[in-house]
Nucleic acid binder design. Structure first.
Lengths: 244, 244
DNA sequence: GAGTGGTCTAGACCACTCA
DNA sequence: GAGTGGTCTAGACCACTCA
Protein backbone atom coordinates (compact mmCIF):
# COMPACT_ATOMS: atom_id res chain seq x y z
CA UNK A 1 0.00 0.00 0.00
CA UNK A 2 1.29 3.44 -0.91
CA UNK A 3 0.10 6.85 0.25
CA UNK A 4 -2.21 8.13 -2.45
CA UNK A 5 -1.63 11.44 -4.19
CA UNK A 6 -2.81 14.65 -2.55
CA UNK A 7 -6.51 15.23 -3.17
CA UNK A 8 -9.52 16.69 -1.42
CA UNK A 9 -10.15 13.25 0.06
CA UNK A 10 -6.54 12.73 1.06
CA UNK A 11 -6.23 10.50 4.09
CA UNK A 12 -2.87 9.47 5.51
CA UNK A 13 -2.01 5.79 5.34
CA UNK A 14 -2.41 5.20 9.03
CA UNK A 15 -5.98 6.48 8.89
CA UNK A 16 -6.77 4.05 6.12
CA UNK A 17 -5.29 1.30 8.28
CA UNK A 18 -7.39 2.54 11.18
CA UNK A 19 -10.49 2.17 9.02
CA UNK A 20 -9.50 -1.34 7.96
CA UNK A 21 -9.03 -2.37 11.59
CA UNK A 22 -12.35 -0.79 12.55
CA UNK A 23 -14.04 -2.75 9.77
CA UNK A 24 -12.52 -5.94 11.15
CA UNK A 25 -14.00 -5.10 14.54
CA UNK A 26 -17.40 -4.23 13.12
CA UNK A 27 -17.60 -7.39 11.05
CA UNK A 28 -16.91 -9.47 14.15
CA UNK A 29 -13.59 -10.72 12.76
CA UNK A 30 -12.10 -9.91 16.18
CA UNK A 31 -14.48 -10.19 19.10
CA UNK A 32 -14.65 -8.42 22.47
CA UNK A 33 -12.22 -9.98 24.92
CA UNK A 34 -10.03 -11.38 22.14
CA UNK A 35 -6.73 -10.05 20.88
CA UNK A 36 -6.16 -8.74 17.38
CA UNK A 37 -3.06 -9.82 15.40
CA UNK A 38 0.31 -8.41 16.43
CA UNK A 39 1.59 -5.17 14.95
CA UNK A 40 4.11 -7.01 12.80
CA UNK A 41 1.45 -9.33 11.43
CA UNK A 42 -0.92 -6.48 10.64
CA UNK A 43 1.96 -4.60 9.01
CA UNK A 44 2.62 -7.60 6.76
CA UNK A 45 -1.07 -8.06 6.01
CA UNK A 46 -1.62 -4.42 5.05
CA UNK A 47 1.81 -4.08 3.47
CA UNK A 48 2.89 -1.09 5.53
CA UNK A 49 5.58 -0.56 8.16
CA UNK A 50 5.09 -1.50 11.79
CA UNK A 51 5.25 2.19 12.69
CA UNK A 52 2.21 2.96 10.58
CA UNK A 53 0.19 0.16 12.16
CA UNK A 54 1.38 1.35 15.53
CA UNK A 55 0.07 4.84 14.85
CA UNK A 56 -3.31 3.51 13.75
CA UNK A 57 -3.59 1.24 16.79
CA UNK A 58 -2.44 4.04 19.10
CA UNK A 59 -5.30 6.25 17.96
CA UNK A 60 -7.81 3.44 18.36
CA UNK A 61 -6.48 2.75 21.86
CA UNK A 62 -6.76 6.45 22.58
CA UNK A 63 -10.44 6.26 21.65
CA UNK A 64 -10.93 3.19 23.87
CA UNK A 65 -11.72 1.05 20.85
CA UNK A 66 -8.68 -1.14 21.53
CA UNK A 67 -6.55 -1.81 24.59
CA UNK A 68 -2.81 -2.40 24.32
CA UNK A 69 -0.96 -4.53 26.87
CA UNK A 70 2.78 -4.62 26.68
CA UNK A 71 4.12 -8.12 26.26
CA UNK A 72 0.66 -9.60 25.70
CA UNK A 73 -0.94 -8.00 22.69
CA UNK A 74 -3.72 -5.67 21.62
CA UNK A 75 -7.24 -6.51 22.77
CA UNK A 76 -10.83 -5.67 21.95
CA UNK A 77 -12.25 -4.40 25.23
CA UNK A 78 -15.47 -5.99 26.45
CA UNK A 79 -18.22 -4.35 28.45
CA UNK A 80 -18.64 -7.73 30.09
CA UNK A 81 -15.32 -8.63 31.72
CA UNK A 82 -13.53 -5.35 31.93
CA UNK A 83 -14.61 -2.34 33.76
CA UNK A 84 -14.87 -0.52 30.44
CA UNK A 85 -18.27 -0.02 32.03
CA UNK A 86 -16.73 2.50 34.38
CA UNK A 87 -16.31 4.91 31.47
CA UNK A 88 -20.06 4.94 30.89
CA UNK A 89 -21.28 4.93 34.47
CA UNK A 90 -20.25 8.31 35.80
CA UNK A 91 -22.45 8.29 38.88
CA UNK A 92 -20.59 7.28 42.04
CA UNK A 93 -21.20 7.43 45.79
CA UNK A 94 -19.85 10.61 47.38
CA UNK A 95 -17.60 8.84 49.86
CA UNK A 96 -17.13 5.23 48.86
CA UNK A 97 -16.06 3.08 45.94
CA UNK A 98 -18.63 1.13 43.95
CA UNK A 99 -18.64 -2.52 44.97
CA UNK A 100 -21.96 -3.67 43.63
CA UNK A 101 -24.38 -2.64 40.92
CA UNK A 102 -27.79 -4.19 40.54
CA UNK A 103 -30.46 -3.61 37.90
CA UNK A 104 -34.22 -4.18 38.20
CA UNK A 105 -36.35 -4.24 35.09
CA UNK A 106 -39.38 -1.96 35.18
CA UNK A 107 -40.72 -2.61 31.71
CA UNK A 108 -39.74 -3.19 28.11
CA UNK A 109 -41.99 -2.28 25.23
CA UNK A 110 -42.15 -1.02 21.66
CA UNK A 111 -42.65 2.67 21.02
CA UNK A 112 -42.69 4.89 17.94
CA UNK A 113 -39.79 7.30 17.56
CA UNK A 114 -40.84 10.91 17.91
CA UNK A 115 -39.30 13.42 15.56
CA UNK A 116 -36.38 14.34 17.77
CA UNK A 117 -35.47 10.75 18.66
CA UNK A 118 -35.63 9.74 15.01
CA UNK A 119 -33.28 12.56 14.09
CA UNK A 120 -30.88 11.70 16.88
CA UNK A 121 -30.83 8.03 15.88
CA UNK A 122 -30.68 8.75 12.17
CA UNK A 123 -34.00 6.96 11.54
CA UNK A 124 -37.22 7.88 9.78
CA UNK A 125 -39.81 9.53 12.02
CA UNK A 126 -42.18 6.93 13.39
CA UNK A 127 -39.58 4.18 13.25
CA UNK A 128 -40.04 1.41 15.78
CA UNK A 129 -37.97 1.58 18.94
CA UNK A 130 -37.63 -0.70 21.92
CA UNK A 131 -37.83 1.12 25.22
CA UNK A 132 -36.30 -0.40 28.34
CA UNK A 133 -36.83 1.10 31.75
CA UNK A 134 -34.77 -0.02 34.71
CA UNK A 135 -33.85 0.89 38.24
CA UNK A 136 -30.18 0.79 39.17
CA UNK A 137 -28.90 0.22 42.68
CA UNK A 138 -25.38 1.13 43.67
CA UNK A 139 -23.99 -0.63 46.75
CA UNK A 140 -27.52 -1.80 47.55
CA UNK A 141 -29.19 1.58 47.30
CA UNK A 142 -31.63 2.48 44.55
CA UNK A 143 -30.15 5.58 42.98
CA UNK A 144 -30.91 5.76 39.27
CA UNK A 145 -34.04 5.37 37.24
CA UNK A 146 -33.21 5.04 33.58
CA UNK A 147 -34.89 4.62 30.24
CA UNK A 148 -33.06 3.44 27.12
CA UNK A 149 -34.45 3.50 23.60
CA UNK A 150 -32.86 1.56 20.74
CA UNK A 151 -33.87 0.88 17.12
CA UNK A 152 -36.03 -2.27 17.00
CA UNK A 153 -34.39 -3.19 13.71
CA UNK A 154 -30.93 -3.46 15.23
CA UNK A 155 -32.04 -5.15 18.44
CA UNK A 156 -34.39 -7.84 17.15
CA UNK A 157 -35.56 -9.99 20.02
CA UNK A 158 -34.75 -7.59 22.84
CA UNK A 159 -37.53 -8.15 25.36
CA UNK A 160 -38.20 -8.65 29.05
CA UNK A 161 -37.14 -12.31 28.90
CA UNK A 162 -33.73 -11.48 27.43
CA UNK A 163 -33.23 -8.71 29.96
CA UNK A 164 -34.20 -10.94 32.88
CA UNK A 165 -31.83 -13.68 31.78
CA UNK A 166 -28.88 -11.28 31.52
CA UNK A 167 -28.97 -9.34 34.73
CA UNK A 168 -26.09 -7.02 33.94
CA UNK A 169 -25.29 -3.69 32.37
CA UNK A 170 -27.23 -3.01 29.19
CA UNK A 171 -24.06 -2.49 27.17
CA UNK A 172 -22.91 -6.01 28.01
CA UNK A 173 -26.21 -7.28 26.64
CA UNK A 174 -25.92 -5.17 23.50
CA UNK A 175 -22.47 -6.61 23.01
CA UNK A 176 -23.03 -10.27 23.82
CA UNK A 177 -26.53 -10.73 22.42
CA UNK A 178 -26.70 -8.20 19.58
CA UNK A 179 -23.03 -7.77 18.64
CA UNK A 180 -23.27 -4.03 19.00
CA UNK A 181 -20.45 -2.38 20.86
CA UNK A 182 -20.93 1.05 22.43
CA UNK A 183 -17.69 3.00 22.13
CA UNK A 184 -18.61 6.64 22.76
CA UNK A 185 -21.42 8.85 24.01
CA UNK A 186 -22.53 12.43 24.37
CA UNK A 187 -24.32 13.51 27.49
CA UNK A 188 -26.36 16.52 28.59
CA UNK A 189 -27.04 17.13 32.26
CA UNK A 190 -29.75 19.15 33.93
CA UNK A 191 -31.28 19.47 37.37
CA UNK A 192 -35.00 18.69 37.52
CA UNK A 193 -37.66 18.01 40.11
CA UNK A 194 -38.38 14.31 40.48
CA UNK A 195 -42.12 14.44 39.89
CA UNK A 196 -44.53 11.73 41.02
CA UNK A 197 -43.38 8.79 38.90
CA UNK A 198 -39.62 9.15 39.28
CA UNK A 199 -40.02 10.15 42.90
CA UNK A 200 -41.88 6.90 43.47
CA UNK A 201 -39.19 4.83 41.83
CA UNK A 202 -36.39 6.46 43.79
CA UNK A 203 -38.23 6.88 47.08
CA UNK A 204 -38.16 10.66 46.85
CA UNK A 205 -40.74 13.40 47.29
CA UNK A 206 -42.06 14.73 43.96
CA UNK A 207 -40.43 18.09 44.64
CA UNK A 208 -36.99 16.63 45.38
CA UNK A 209 -34.21 17.56 42.93
CA UNK A 210 -32.78 14.88 40.65
CA UNK A 211 -29.86 14.91 38.27
CA UNK A 212 -31.12 14.24 34.74
CA UNK A 213 -28.64 12.75 32.29
CA UNK A 214 -29.52 12.51 28.60
CA UNK A 215 -27.28 10.39 26.44
CA UNK A 216 -26.76 9.55 22.78
CA UNK A 217 -24.54 6.47 22.56
CA UNK A 218 -22.49 5.54 19.52
CA UNK A 219 -21.03 2.41 18.03
CA UNK A 220 -18.12 2.26 15.55
CA UNK A 221 -17.97 5.04 13.01
CA UNK A 222 -19.93 7.36 15.31
CA UNK A 223 -23.22 5.73 14.39
CA UNK A 224 -25.85 6.53 17.05
CA UNK A 225 -27.59 3.40 18.35
CA UNK A 226 -29.08 4.28 21.72
CA UNK A 227 -30.88 7.15 23.42
CA UNK A 228 -30.90 7.17 27.18
CA UNK A 229 -32.38 9.25 29.93
CA UNK A 230 -31.32 8.70 33.51
CA UNK A 231 -32.63 10.32 36.66
CA UNK A 232 -30.34 10.16 39.63
CA UNK A 233 -30.92 10.82 43.29
CA UNK A 234 -27.81 12.90 43.88
CA UNK A 235 -28.24 13.32 47.64
CA UNK A 236 -25.36 10.95 48.39
CA UNK A 237 -24.05 10.42 44.87
CA UNK A 238 -22.54 12.62 42.20
CA UNK A 239 -21.65 12.65 38.53
CA UNK A 240 -17.85 12.67 38.19
CA UNK A 241 -16.06 14.29 35.30
CA UNK A 242 -12.45 14.99 34.46
CA UNK A 243 -11.59 17.91 32.20
CA UNK A 244 -8.53 17.63 30.00
CA UNK B 1 21.09 12.43 26.66
CA UNK B 2 20.88 8.66 26.86
CA UNK B 3 18.09 6.50 28.24
CA UNK B 4 19.13 5.61 31.76
CA UNK B 5 19.45 2.05 32.96
CA UNK B 6 16.36 0.18 34.08
CA UNK B 7 15.48 1.00 37.67
CA UNK B 8 12.41 1.41 39.86
CA UNK B 9 12.32 5.07 38.82
CA UNK B 10 12.86 4.34 35.14
CA UNK B 11 11.29 6.95 32.93
CA UNK B 12 11.58 6.85 29.15
CA UNK B 13 13.53 9.65 27.51
CA UNK B 14 10.48 11.31 26.04
CA UNK B 15 8.93 11.63 29.48
CA UNK B 16 12.04 13.33 30.76
CA UNK B 17 11.81 15.72 27.78
CA UNK B 18 8.15 16.26 28.62
CA UNK B 19 9.15 17.29 32.11
CA UNK B 20 11.83 19.65 30.82
CA UNK B 21 9.30 21.33 28.53
CA UNK B 22 6.77 21.59 31.34
CA UNK B 23 9.41 23.23 33.51
CA UNK B 24 10.05 25.77 30.76
CA UNK B 25 6.33 26.54 30.71
CA UNK B 26 6.09 26.81 34.48
CA UNK B 27 9.10 29.09 34.74
CA UNK B 28 7.54 31.44 32.21
CA UNK B 29 10.30 30.79 29.68
CA UNK B 30 7.53 30.40 27.07
CA UNK B 31 4.39 32.39 27.72
CA UNK B 32 0.74 31.81 26.82
CA UNK B 33 0.06 32.83 23.22
CA UNK B 34 3.70 32.40 22.23
CA UNK B 35 5.28 29.53 20.35
CA UNK B 36 7.91 27.24 21.78
CA UNK B 37 11.03 26.35 19.74
CA UNK B 38 10.65 24.00 16.79
CA UNK B 39 10.98 20.26 17.23
CA UNK B 40 14.38 20.26 15.54
CA UNK B 41 15.66 23.01 17.80
CA UNK B 42 14.39 21.29 20.93
CA UNK B 43 15.93 18.04 19.71
CA UNK B 44 19.31 19.78 19.35
CA UNK B 45 18.94 21.50 22.72
CA UNK B 46 18.08 18.31 24.58
CA UNK B 47 20.39 16.17 22.47
CA UNK B 48 17.75 13.65 21.42
CA UNK B 49 16.15 12.79 18.10
CA UNK B 50 13.29 14.78 16.62
CA UNK B 51 11.04 11.76 17.07
CA UNK B 52 11.57 11.76 20.80
CA UNK B 53 10.73 15.45 21.07
CA UNK B 54 7.73 14.83 18.88
CA UNK B 55 6.46 12.14 21.22
CA UNK B 56 6.87 14.42 24.25
CA UNK B 57 5.12 17.32 22.52
CA UNK B 58 2.36 15.03 21.24
CA UNK B 59 1.52 13.97 24.79
CA UNK B 60 1.52 17.57 26.00
CA UNK B 61 -0.75 18.55 23.11
CA UNK B 62 -2.98 15.64 24.02
CA UNK B 63 -3.28 17.09 27.52
CA UNK B 64 -4.07 20.55 26.11
CA UNK B 65 -0.87 21.93 27.57
CA UNK B 66 0.43 22.75 24.09
CA UNK B 67 -1.22 23.26 20.71
CA UNK B 68 0.44 22.16 17.49
CA UNK B 69 -0.28 23.93 14.22
CA UNK B 70 1.13 22.40 11.08
CA UNK B 71 3.35 24.82 9.19
CA UNK B 72 3.33 27.37 11.99
CA UNK B 73 4.74 25.85 15.14
CA UNK B 74 3.80 24.67 18.60
CA UNK B 75 2.05 27.16 20.87
CA UNK B 76 1.25 27.70 24.51
CA UNK B 77 -2.53 28.06 24.60
CA UNK B 78 -3.92 31.11 26.36
CA UNK B 79 -7.18 31.38 28.24
CA UNK B 80 -7.31 34.93 26.95
CA UNK B 81 -7.23 34.74 23.18
CA UNK B 82 -8.20 31.22 22.42
CA UNK B 83 -11.36 29.55 23.34
CA UNK B 84 -9.37 27.20 25.51
CA UNK B 85 -12.04 28.58 27.81
CA UNK B 86 -14.57 26.38 26.10
CA UNK B 87 -12.97 23.34 27.69
CA UNK B 88 -13.69 24.70 31.15
CA UNK B 89 -17.13 26.19 30.57
CA UNK B 90 -19.33 23.18 29.98
CA UNK B 91 -22.66 24.93 30.44
CA UNK B 92 -24.31 25.89 27.15
CA UNK B 93 -27.76 27.01 26.00
CA UNK B 94 -29.99 24.11 24.97
CA UNK B 95 -30.64 25.39 21.47
CA UNK B 96 -28.13 28.07 20.58
CA UNK B 97 -24.40 28.70 20.43
CA UNK B 98 -22.73 30.94 23.00
CA UNK B 99 -22.09 34.39 21.56
CA UNK B 100 -21.56 36.41 24.70
CA UNK B 101 -20.45 35.79 28.26
CA UNK B 102 -20.59 38.46 30.91
CA UNK B 103 -19.45 38.34 34.55
CA UNK B 104 -20.69 40.48 37.45
CA UNK B 105 -18.70 40.59 40.66
CA UNK B 106 -20.73 39.89 43.79
CA UNK B 107 -17.94 40.08 46.34
CA UNK B 108 -14.33 39.22 46.98
CA UNK B 109 -12.98 38.58 50.46
CA UNK B 110 -10.52 36.58 52.54
CA UNK B 111 -11.67 33.42 54.24
CA UNK B 112 -10.00 30.68 56.26
CA UNK B 113 -9.73 27.29 54.61
CA UNK B 114 -11.88 24.69 56.29
CA UNK B 115 -10.44 21.24 56.73
CA UNK B 116 -11.76 19.82 53.49
CA UNK B 117 -10.71 22.80 51.35
CA UNK B 118 -7.24 22.76 52.87
CA UNK B 119 -6.88 19.08 52.06
CA UNK B 120 -8.11 19.59 48.51
CA UNK B 121 -5.70 22.48 47.93
CA UNK B 122 -2.80 20.79 49.70
CA UNK B 123 -2.61 23.55 52.33
CA UNK B 124 -2.54 23.64 56.11
CA UNK B 125 -5.99 23.87 57.74
CA UNK B 126 -6.84 27.48 58.44
CA UNK B 127 -4.71 28.76 55.55
CA UNK B 128 -5.85 32.03 54.07
CA UNK B 129 -7.94 31.87 50.91
CA UNK B 130 -9.41 34.52 48.67
CA UNK B 131 -13.04 33.88 47.82
CA UNK B 132 -14.57 35.42 44.70
CA UNK B 133 -18.27 35.24 44.00
CA UNK B 134 -19.64 36.18 40.62
CA UNK B 135 -22.72 35.93 38.46
CA UNK B 136 -22.28 34.76 34.89
CA UNK B 137 -24.60 35.66 32.06
CA UNK B 138 -24.69 33.68 28.85
CA UNK B 139 -26.11 35.44 25.81
CA UNK B 140 -27.45 38.14 28.13
CA UNK B 141 -29.20 35.82 30.57
CA UNK B 142 -28.02 35.32 34.14
CA UNK B 143 -27.50 31.59 34.40
CA UNK B 144 -24.66 30.76 36.78
CA UNK B 145 -23.80 31.85 40.28
CA UNK B 146 -20.27 30.81 41.14
CA UNK B 147 -17.80 30.98 43.97
CA UNK B 148 -14.07 30.41 43.53
CA UNK B 149 -11.54 29.99 46.32
CA UNK B 150 -7.79 30.25 45.74
CA UNK B 151 -4.77 30.29 48.07
CA UNK B 152 -4.05 33.89 49.12
CA UNK B 153 -0.34 33.16 48.98
CA UNK B 154 -0.39 32.34 45.27
CA UNK B 155 -2.78 35.12 44.31
CA UNK B 156 -1.33 38.11 46.20
CA UNK B 157 -3.27 41.25 45.32
CA UNK B 158 -6.39 39.56 43.97
CA UNK B 159 -9.20 41.86 45.05
CA UNK B 160 -12.34 43.57 43.80
CA UNK B 161 -10.36 46.27 42.01
CA UNK B 162 -8.34 43.74 40.00
CA UNK B 163 -11.49 41.81 39.16
CA UNK B 164 -13.36 44.93 38.08
CA UNK B 165 -10.50 46.04 35.82
CA UNK B 166 -10.32 42.66 34.06
CA UNK B 167 -13.89 41.86 33.20
CA UNK B 168 -13.25 38.45 31.72
CA UNK B 169 -13.05 34.80 32.63
CA UNK B 170 -11.24 34.16 35.92
CA UNK B 171 -8.72 31.85 34.28
CA UNK B 172 -7.61 34.66 31.99
CA UNK B 173 -6.96 36.76 35.07
CA UNK B 174 -5.09 33.97 36.81
CA UNK B 175 -2.95 33.65 33.71
CA UNK B 176 -2.29 37.28 32.84
CA UNK B 177 -2.05 38.75 36.34
CA UNK B 178 -0.75 35.87 38.43
CA UNK B 179 1.07 33.71 35.87
CA UNK B 180 -0.88 30.65 36.90
CA UNK B 181 -2.24 28.52 34.09
CA UNK B 182 -5.16 26.17 34.70
CA UNK B 183 -4.66 23.06 32.61
CA UNK B 184 -7.02 20.46 34.06
CA UNK B 185 -9.90 20.03 36.47
CA UNK B 186 -12.06 17.47 38.22
CA UNK B 187 -15.74 18.12 38.61
CA UNK B 188 -18.59 16.64 40.64
CA UNK B 189 -22.18 17.38 39.72
CA UNK B 190 -25.31 17.20 41.79
CA UNK B 191 -28.87 18.48 41.61
CA UNK B 192 -29.89 20.74 44.49
CA UNK B 193 -32.67 23.13 45.39
CA UNK B 194 -31.67 26.75 44.85
CA UNK B 195 -32.44 28.03 48.35
CA UNK B 196 -33.06 31.68 49.14
CA UNK B 197 -29.66 33.20 48.36
CA UNK B 198 -28.90 31.43 45.09
CA UNK B 199 -32.53 31.70 44.04
CA UNK B 200 -32.27 35.44 44.51
CA UNK B 201 -29.13 35.69 42.42
CA UNK B 202 -30.58 33.64 39.57
CA UNK B 203 -34.15 34.92 39.76
CA UNK B 204 -35.49 31.53 40.80
CA UNK B 205 -37.85 30.32 43.49
CA UNK B 206 -36.00 28.84 46.49
CA UNK B 207 -37.44 25.42 45.69
CA UNK B 208 -36.35 25.45 42.05
CA UNK B 209 -33.76 22.84 41.06
CA UNK B 210 -30.24 23.97 40.19
CA UNK B 211 -27.28 22.09 38.79
CA UNK B 212 -24.41 22.26 41.28
CA UNK B 213 -20.89 21.86 39.89
CA UNK B 214 -17.94 21.45 42.25
CA UNK B 215 -14.50 21.78 40.75
CA UNK B 216 -10.89 21.32 41.75
CA UNK B 217 -8.69 23.03 39.15
CA UNK B 218 -5.05 22.15 38.54
CA UNK B 219 -2.01 23.85 37.13
CA UNK B 220 1.10 22.11 35.73
CA UNK B 221 2.14 18.95 37.51
CA UNK B 222 -1.41 18.39 38.74
CA UNK B 223 -1.01 20.91 41.54
CA UNK B 224 -4.46 22.02 42.79
CA UNK B 225 -4.82 25.82 42.84
CA UNK B 226 -8.53 26.58 42.81
CA UNK B 227 -11.76 25.29 44.32
CA UNK B 228 -14.97 26.31 42.66
CA UNK B 229 -18.65 25.83 43.23
CA UNK B 230 -21.14 26.82 40.55
CA UNK B 231 -24.91 26.80 40.65
CA UNK B 232 -26.62 26.80 37.30
CA UNK B 233 -30.20 27.44 36.31
CA UNK B 234 -30.55 24.49 33.95
CA UNK B 235 -34.05 25.30 32.71
CA UNK B 236 -32.77 26.38 29.30
CA UNK B 237 -29.13 25.36 29.65
CA UNK B 238 -27.29 22.10 30.16
CA UNK B 239 -23.90 20.71 31.08
CA UNK B 240 -22.39 19.04 28.01
CA UNK B 241 -20.03 16.10 28.23
CA UNK B 242 -18.44 13.76 25.73
CA UNK B 243 -17.45 10.26 26.81
CA UNK B 244 -14.47 8.59 25.15
C1' DG C 1 13.45 -18.15 24.82
C1' DA C 2 9.92 -16.58 21.79
C1' DG C 3 6.68 -13.12 21.11
C1' DT C 4 4.42 -8.95 22.33
C1' DG C 5 4.12 -3.91 22.59
C1' DG C 6 7.36 0.39 23.92
C1' DT C 7 11.19 3.46 22.96
C1' DC C 8 14.58 5.64 20.14
C1' DT C 9 17.12 6.89 16.04
C1' DA C 10 18.05 8.66 11.31
C1' DG C 11 16.43 9.98 7.31
C1' DA C 12 13.15 10.86 3.47
C1' DC C 13 9.40 13.23 1.81
C1' DC C 14 4.70 15.61 2.33
C1' DA C 15 1.28 19.40 3.71
C1' DC C 16 0.88 23.72 5.28
C1' DT C 17 2.05 28.69 6.43
C1' DC C 18 4.05 32.85 5.65
C1' DA C 19 6.94 36.37 3.74
C1' DG D 1 11.65 29.34 -0.80
C1' DA D 2 12.46 28.60 3.98
C1' DG D 3 10.62 26.73 7.98
C1' DT D 4 7.15 24.37 10.48
C1' DG D 5 4.75 20.16 11.97
C1' DG D 6 2.87 15.42 9.78
C1' DT D 7 3.67 10.93 7.72
C1' DC D 8 6.27 6.89 6.70
C1' DT D 9 10.06 3.67 6.68
C1' DA D 10 13.67 0.48 8.47
C1' DG D 11 16.04 -1.03 11.99
C1' DA D 12 17.90 -1.48 16.75
C1' DC D 13 17.13 -2.46 21.31
C1' DC D 14 14.19 -2.49 25.73
C1' DA D 15 10.37 -4.02 29.04
C1' DC D 16 7.14 -7.22 29.81
C1' DT D 17 4.47 -11.70 29.61
C1' DC D 18 4.06 -16.39 29.36
C1' DA D 19 5.17 -21.17 28.66
Amino acid sequence: MKPEAASPAYQPLYRQIKLLITEGLESGQWKPGQSIPSELELAKRFNVSQGTVRKAVAELAQENVLVRRQGRGTFVPSHAHERAQAAFLRITPDNAPIHAIHAELVDCCRVKADERSARQLDLDPGASLIRVRRLLSINGRRVICEEARVPAGLFKGLDAAVLESHRCMLYSIYESVFQIRIVAAEERLKALLAGAEIGDFLGLAPDAPVLAVERVAYTYGRRPVELRRGFCNSADHHYANIIS
